[in-house]
Simulated assay, not measured.
Amino acid sequence: MRTTLGGHQDVPGFAAAHREQSWRYPGPGDAWQPVHTVYVPADRFGPGTAREWGDAALALLERHLPSAGRLAEVFGPVPGDLAADVRDRVARKLAAEPVEDLRIDFEDGYGTRPPAEEDAHAVRAAEAVAAAHAGGTLPRRWGPRVKSFADGDPGRALRTLDLLLTGVADRVGGLPPGLAVTFPKVLMESYLGQFATGLAGLERGLGLHAGALRFEMQVEAPQTVMFLQRSADLVPSLGGRLAAAHFGVFDYTAACGLPPGEQRLDHPVCDHAREVMRTALAGTGVELSDGSLAAAPASEATADVHALWRAHAGMVRHSLRHGFYQGWDMHPSHLVSRYATVYTFHLAAFDAYAARVAAWEACRDAEGGVMDEPATVKTLTAALRRAGMALEGTAP
């Protein structure tokens, strides 16, 4: 067989470029990702916090949605044959594992306190984490949100983190699995490297292996979006320490000058920021999380509880449709609408996705004349895997 170039061709520089590609863009990992993060002010956190949230959410469900009859009316489109299943899954989830991921908040939800008071709350939080771990009530992911370096006092953020992690390690004999540290209001790219250096120091002091302490950055300002757009080396420069990026809707919309009535998760300026997050971090293995709804039921009346659920479900559905599969919950009522919307989203498409993957594997077109491309099949497979993780532990 005649060729112009001859045999197998070596491409100069290819091997090095391919190694760099693999290093920069390892793709999504196989690790479980929670569907939400609950954050609780540090002075209100205790070993029973997750269970308390679950009990409160379950009570709301039983009182204001005792059957599946009004599920679609409250939470949006729910195929009729799924309504009873979704409600049952939500009830079982709230009873068994109401909170998948919890942040002990020392930032906006906590405020500025005298140094001695914050020290005391950090120590008390360490005691509560140790007690929750011993009692089996510590969520699968847990950790603090420390203060921002943008506040002008990085020492305060690192001291609180040190007190908490050292206190937990001393009481438990190590750090329980699932630790996540949230670093807010990253107005300067250099703050990320400085925070990573602080984590490295904590690792050495606690006798942890290098890289054991990773963190989540919060995207809460236009400045952050700008450096995400221009910095191709951000993730590699942090040496694998950046685990996730979480969007902060209220700080971001305020920084963009939006009026209070427009500070909402589905505003176009938020969609833009999330698209920058997605493209800047695509393929890096850094998880993405959306923001929250800052609202609780206006009263204990069923109409007000349903109104809250309806609003929250709409925001969660917006996030899911745009490929953000995790978000922040700020009130026990949000657990009901979070799980109901997530379960509906995954269950409604599961069988159709599975059939398309099966058709592809059998080398035939899917029903309805769908001709899937390899990239689509990869997406379908990822969606099935994500659905399996989200629905874990809720099956009858």
Rank of each mutant, 00 (worst) to 15 (best):
A294W: 11
V336S: 00
G291H: 08
P139I: 02
L234M: 05
A157I: 13
T4K: 03
Y191I: 12
R140T: 09
G167F: 12
L293S: 08
R124I: 09
Y343Q: 08
V86H: 01
G152S: 05
L175T: 02
P114N: 14
A311Q: 13
S148T: 14
E100Q: 15
A31M: 02
R230I: 14
G155D: 15
L175M: 08
V146K: 03
T253A: 12
P332L: 12
A116E: 15
K378Q: 06
A130K: 02
L164V: 13
A232N: 04
T284A: 09
D88W: 04
A83K: 03
T3G: 09
G13A: 10
A72C: 14
P332D: 02
A72F: 11
E107W: 07
Q218E: 10
P139A: 03
R214E: 04
A17M: 15
L288Y: 02
Q326S: 12
L335S: 00
G27V: 03
A348M: 06
E216Q: 11
G155N: 13
G201M: 13
V129T: 10
V342T: 08
G285S: 10
W328D: 14
K93R: 10
L335H: 00
V286Y: 03
G393K: 07
G193A: 14
G248Y: 11
A122N: 09
G69F: 08
L208K: 08
H64C: 05
H267Q: 05
R92Q: 03
W23M: 08
G205H: 13
T37Y: 06
T49S: 09
P77H: 01
R19S: 15
G207T: 12
E100H: 14
G368H: 05
A232V: 08
A383G: 05
F75R: 02
H306Q: 13
S231Q: 03
